[in-house]
Amino acid sequence: MDSLDTMRAFVAVADAGGFAAAARLLGLSPPAVTRAIAAIEERIGTRLLQRTTRVVRLTEAGTHYLVDCKRILAEIAEAEASAAGSHGEPAGQLAVTAPVMFGRLFVAPLVFDFQARHPRVTARLLLVDRVVDLVEEGLHVAVRIANLADSSLSAARVGWLRRVVCASPGFLAAHGVPVRPGNLEGRDSIAFGGGVSPPGWSFPVAGRTETIGVAHRLTVNTADVAVAAAVAGRGFTRVLSYQSAAEVAAGRLVIVLEDFEPPPIPIHIVHPEGRRASARVRAFVDYAVERLRAEPSLQ
């Protein structure tokens, strides 16, 4: 095998979790795949895989090598497609990640419609409420709701989100409408976060930040549950504006303290390949940017 074939064999073993499964995928014998991996390890002088009778695991060096192999093989495939004249037609797998609720409401419909326009594109959509390393997890595009730090990622801002405090009309009628952040002190609330109640809610007041000690009667780790609890009259909750938009529009929640909201949070589409991005990634990014910038609830 040449260097590229041995790279393909290594990727197959890593993805399949074993030599026999990789051999079946590649149409080779297990001894041929074993020799290919041994040749790589001898050539670069380090162990890439830990082998036991039951499982094959990547070493630390193997993990880094796998990322590089996948990148190199993808670039070669893209170069061959370009030489064949198919570079401009979106095709192949598109892997996208986004926060769970935002992904369900906005990104999944984008992916569905994009595939309808480009039937040669297959898609993988990873919805998680954490920052994902695109290269390490084999992803092409991410939606990030945050102020971005400097990085090598290409980014396009597509909108803004407010952080809003809201409650049900019935709760406000029973307990009063707050007119300043201090009115929330000790009031029933629903905390939305990583499962640990925050010490309080911070607001910009007269040029400084004021932290209010609200009473978190319920702490949840998903925004939809926090919103549902607020609709049920369990107290105030603080979420991003899109997360409560449907209930606000239906009159089941009311936003309060709008004059004391922190600066809005930007929404970005990011991807790691810049101008070298494949046709499918460039096409999806352009499509997603146009669609999200036209969404009134994100502006």
Rank of each mutant, 00 (worst) to 15 (best):
F114D: 01
T211Q: 12
G235T: 07
H140P: 04
N183G: 08
F171L: 06
V205Q: 00
A277L: 04
R238F: 00
A81L: 15
S168H: 04
N221T: 15
R144C: 07
S241C: 11
H118F: 09
A229Y: 09
V239L: 11
R130T: 13
P198A: 04
R180K: 12
V158K: 02
T97Y: 03
G18V: 08
V285K: 05
D2G: 14
T97I: 02
V100R: 14
A14Q: 01
L125C: 08
F106L: 15
I269R: 08
V196P: 02
A39C: 06
R252S: 11
E261A: 12
E258L: 02
G17W: 08
P266M: 05
I267D: 02
F112N: 09
V107N: 03
L240K: 11
A191N: 13
D188Y: 01
R51G: 00
R130K: 14
R180E: 12
V225K: 14
A16R: 14
R47M: 09
R157L: 03
G235P: 01
R252Y: 00
I269V: 15
S197T: 14
A79H: 13
Q115A: 10
I267A: 08
R51I: 11
T219M: 06
A84T: 10
E60L: 13
V220I: 10
E273K: 04
A226L: 10
V107T: 14
E137Q: 15
V141Q: 09
A20I: 10
D113L: 13
G274P: 05
R124F: 06
Q299D: 13
V56C: 08
V143I: 15
T211L: 07
I212H: 05
V254A: 09
I190M: 08
F19N: 05
V11E: 07
R51N: 01
E89M: 10
D113S: 13
W160C: 03
L26F: 08
P263V: 08
G194L: 13
F236K: 07
L172P: 04
I269S: 01
A206M: 07
V205K: 01
T122N: 11
L292D: 01
V248R: 15
L292V: 05
A61M: 09
E60Y: 11
A39R: 14
L49N: 02
A223M: 10
R54C: 00
D224M: 09
A12L: 04
R24C: 00
S278V: 00
V270M: 08
T209H: 07
A36D: 14
R162V: 02
G18N: 06
V225A: 14
V164A: 02
V33H: 03
F10H: 01
V131Y: 11
I212M: 03
D259A: 15
P199S: 10
V165W: 05
V179I: 06
I40R: 03
A230R: 01
A20K: 13
L172H: 00
Y65L: 10
